[in-house]
Amino acid sequence: MSGTGFFKAVPALKREGGSVSIRIDDRACTVRAGLSVAAALLEQGAVRFRRTPVSGAPRAPLCMMGVCFECLLEIDGVANSQSCLIEVRDGMRIRTQDGAARLASMTEGTAP
């Protein structure tokens, strides 16, 4: 498998469970079924999941168990999704997330 080495799939769990097709930033790819989105992206070699809203620093998953909020992605149009807690589904559309979530029809106000 490719990947950055920080996380490794446990060999005993690499069972044959079929595969699903997803899109990552408009790139079609096929990943193992049953993985979390975060694990699937790591297997695809992703090293940057998002940029932070404050400093723009690059981020990637740290805990893989729903605690650290570093793995946030836009998944099927929903920003700030914790990708380590969401299982890949066929046809899923995933986008790396730069900065804060944009709520629909948001417009910045001006100072009075």
């Binding site: 700030n80 804060a100 979530a101 944009r102 709520l103 910045e108 106000g109 009075p112």
Partner: peptide, 10 residues
């Protein structure tokens, strides 16, 4: 809430 783009400057 989660972090969202700036909309409230005051």
């Amino acid at each position: 809430t989660e972090r969202v783009e700036p909309f409230l400057p005051v």
